[in-house]
């Protein structure tokens, strides 16, 4: 009997301890999740609108939960002041130029405070610091934007309605295209032309292909032209020579131009010769005189050949010439 009572006592004790252990595990699990056993600092921020944020909502920094909202209260100034408990371990990563904004945990989740930014040059946050609040996009803002989009959509659909009505009535290019049969035949002919052009293009492409294959064929002139460095250097030299020749030609042309200018200039001797009528007449007279002089000189020389002093010389010369012919 006594042993039975002891057994019951042991079982009840064990049962109670396990039950209490479950209770304590629950307490610590909840405490861990709500950071109840973590030393924290309090940081403030002031928002114009907190969108239903309440005490106990989470505070995130770079997507990591770092604390909870301690209190939300209407401050005397315009806006709502919130106090946040942030774990001391996380404080070393948050700088006091960081900004806070109200967000939501998922699309329809609880409100959260999101701390973001902050530069390494600024000191880390400490108890009592105030962080700058950033205005978050509210549902009203979204609805207003959607309303604007709706109005735009209404305008667009109105325009589309007008366009489709004009098309249906055969107005405008597309309407005519649908209604006018001559346009269809024109279009058909355009399509034929395009088809022919595409055939030609294909032919050109094949020609280009064959040309490029020839270009790639080793030993051909084109390939040598492209690939042979000696030919290329010779070509370059030739081009240089042509360039030099063209320079020389340019100089000659310049000289010729100067000469031409001199010829045209009546003050110059040659110009005077060409352009001065008096000088031309004189020259003509000189030439006449020279012709007459030469004729007379010819007669004189003929006479001189028959002169007794020189007759021997000329006979001797005739004999030598006859001998040379034989």
């Amino acid at each position: 009997m006594k042993s039975s009572k002891n057994k019951k006592a042991v079982i009840v004790g064990l049962f109670s301890i396990v039950g209490i252990a479950i209770f304590l595990v629950g307490v610590f699990a909840l405490g861990g999740q709500h950071s109840l056993f973590v030393t924290t600092i309090t940081v403030k921020a002031s928002f114009t609108d907190v969108n239903g944020l309440t005490a106990g909502n989470n505070v995130w920094f770079e997507g990591v939960k770092v604390g909870t909202v301690k209190s939300v209260s209407l401050s005397g100034k315009p806006g709502v002041e919130i106090q946040m408990n942030i774990g001391k371990k996380s404080c070393q990563y948050i700088h006091n130029d960081a900004k806070a904004k109200i967000g939501s945990d998922g699309l329809i989740g609880n409100r959260i405070v999101i701390i973001m930014g902050g530069t390494a040059d600024s000191p880390v946050i400490k108890d009592g610091d105030i962080i700058e609040a950033e205005k978050a996009l509210t549902t009203d803002d979204l609805v207003n934007t959607l309303q604007k989009n709706n109005l735009n959509l209404l305008d667009i659909t109105g325009d589309l309605k007008t366009i489709s009505r004009r098309i249906a009535n055969g107005e405008g290019t597309i309407g005519k295209l649908l209604k006018d049969e001559s346009l269809v035949s024109n279009l058909q002919s355009v399509v034929d032309i395009v088809k022919q052009a595409s055939v030609n293009t294909r032919q050109i492409t094949s020609n280009l292909e064959s040309y490029s294959s020839k270009l790639e064929a080793k030993g051909s002139f084109a390939n040598d032209l492209v690939t042979d460095t000696i030919i290329f250097s010779k070509l370059r030299e030739t081009v240089i020579h042509i360039r030099e020749i063209s320079k020389t030609i340019a100089v000659v042309a310049a000289d010729l131009q100067t000469a031409g200018e001199n010829i045209n200039d009546s003050s110059k001797p040659i110009g005077a010769l060409i352009h001065d009528r008096e000088a031309a007449d004189n020259l003509k007279t000189i030439l006449k005189n020279l012709a007459s002089g030469s004729h007379k000189l010819d007669e004189d020389l003929e006479a001189l050949q028959h002169n007794f002093l020189l007759r021997g010389f000329f006979r001797k010369k005739e004999k030598e010439e006859a001998k040379a012919k034989k």
């Binding site: 009572k5 019951k8 006592a9 079982i11 009840v12 049962f15 109670s16």
Partner: peptide, 16 residues
């Protein structure tokens, strides 16, 4: 205490 333990056994453990 003995009666309490006995009742705890009957009420608690026996209902587990």
């Amino acid at each position: 205490p003995r009666e309490v333990i006995k009742q705890c056994y009957e009420i608690g453990y026996r209902s587990l």
